[in-house]
Computed example of a mutant assay.
Amino acid sequence: MSRPARLLLDRLPSPIGELLVVTDETGLLRAVDFHDYEHRLDRLLKIHYGPLRPEPGAVPAATRTALAAYFEGQTDALSALTWDTNGTDFQTAVWTALGSIPAGQTITYSELARRVGRPGSVRAAGAANGANPLSLVAPCHRVIGMNGALTGYGGGIDRKRWLLTHEGAL
C-alpha cells in the first residue's frame, strides 16, 4: 500500500453507464465505479485516502484501452491493469483473490473466504467484497450466492447480470 500525493478522476463511457475511474499521479489505478454510485465512491475514497480528494484528470491510455477492450468482448483485458488501494491486509487479499477469478466463471462467498485462507470468515469476505473500490477490475460481480443467486453488487443486480452475461457466465 502506498499513499498517493494526488488522485485524478476521469469519466469514461461504457454500455452500462458512465465509469468513474480514479488514478494517482503515477497513473496507478485506485478506484473504478459507476456514475450513479458516485456517493459510494466518494465515501470509499474518504475511508482509504482521508482528506485527499480527486481532481479532474485523464486516465492513462493503457487503462482507457483495457476498459474499452473489456466492453468490446476481450473479457480478460482488465487483468493486465495494476492497482493499489489503502484497504486493510484482509481487504486487499480479498480484492486480489477476486482478480484471480477468470472471466466467465463465478465463485461463492464461502469459496472466496476459503481462497484468502479464512474459510470461517464468509461474512467478513462478503463485507470486504462489498467495500471493493475497484469495480470490474477486482471483479466482485463474479461472486454469487451459495444457491447461484445474483446477490449483492454495488453497481446493482441488473449490471451484475449484464456483466456475467457479457463474460459468458450466464
Score class of each variant (00 low, 15 high):
Gly87Glu: 13
Tyr37Leu: 01
Glu111Gln: 15
Asp10Met: 09
Ala68Glu: 15
Arg3Gln: 02
Leu67Pro: 06
Leu29His: 12
Thr26Arg: 00
Tyr109Glu: 06
Pro133Asp: 02
Glu55Tyr: 08
His141Val: 09
Ala68Met: 01
Ser135Glu: 14
Ala93Gly: 15
Gly57Leu: 12
Lys46Ala: 12
Arg114Ser: 08
Leu67Asn: 00
Gly99Pro: 00
His48Met: 05
Gly148Leu: 13
Gly156Cys: 07
Leu28Lys: 13
Ile107Phe: 06
Ser121His: 08
Asp89Phe: 06
Thr92Gln: 14
Gly155Ser: 14
Met146Ile: 07
Tyr70Phe: 10
Leu28Tyr: 02
Asn147Arg: 05
Glu55Pro: 04
Ala124Asn: 12
Ala61Gly: 09
His48Glu: 05
Gly145Ile: 15
Leu170Gln: 02
Thr88Trp: 11
Ser110Asn: 00
Leu45Tyr: 02
Ala128Tyr: 07
Tyr109His: 10
Thr85Pro: 03
Gly104Leu: 14
Arg53Ser: 06
Ala80Gln: 14
Ser14Ala: 07
Gly27Ser: 02
Leu112Ser: 03
Phe34Val: 00
Leu112Trp: 04
Pro56His: 13
Asp158Glu: 09
Val94Leu: 00
Ala113Ile: 11
Leu8Thr: 02
Ala125Phe: 12
Asn129Phe: 09
Met1His: 10
Gly27Phe: 11
Glu18Val: 06
Gly168Ser: 10
Thr85Val: 06
Glu55Arg: 10
Arg3His: 01
Gly120Gln: 10
Asp36Met: 10
Ile47Cys: 04
Gly17Cys: 09
Thr106Val: 11
Leu44Arg: 13
Glu72Trp: 09
Thr151Pro: 00
Leu67His: 10
Asp33Tyr: 05
Arg53Ile: 03
Gly154Met: 06
Ile47Ala: 15
Thr82Lys: 12
Leu164Gly: 02
His39Met: 11
Trp83Pro: 04
Asp24Ala: 12
Leu163Asp: 01
Ser121Thr: 08
Ala128Lys: 02
Thr75Met: 04
Glu38Leu: 08
Gly120Glu: 13
Leu9Ala: 00
Gly148Tyr: 07
Thr85Arg: 05
Leu98His: 14
Thr82Phe: 07
Thr65Met: 01
Met146Arg: 13
Val32Tyr: 00
Gly168Tyr: 11
Arg43Val: 00
Val116Glu: 08
Gly117Val: 08
Val122Asp: 00
Ala31Asp: 09
Phe34His: 04
Ala128Val: 00
Ala149Ile: 09
Gly130Asn: 11
Gly152Ala: 12
Pro102His: 02
Lys46Asp: 13
Asp158Ile: 14
Leu7Val: 03
Gly145Asp: 15
Thr63His: 13
Thr65Ser: 15
Gly87Gln: 04
Leu28Arg: 13
His35Met: 15
Tyr37Val: 09
Val137Glu: 01
Lys46Met: 13
Leu45Glu: 08
Ala58Leu: 03
Arg30Val: 01
Thr65Tyr: 14
Leu29Arg: 03
Pro15Thr: 15
Gly104Cys: 10
Thr96Gly: 07
Asn147Ser: 14
Leu52Gly: 05
Leu170Lys: 07
Gly99Ser: 06
Arg115Lys: 14
Ala61Cys: 12
Pro15Asn: 11
Leu28Val: 11
Gln105Leu: 11
Leu150Phe: 12
Ile157Gln: 07
Ser2Thr: 11
Pro15Gly: 14
Asp84Thr: 08
Arg123Gly: 06
Thr85Asn: 00
Glu167Tyr: 05
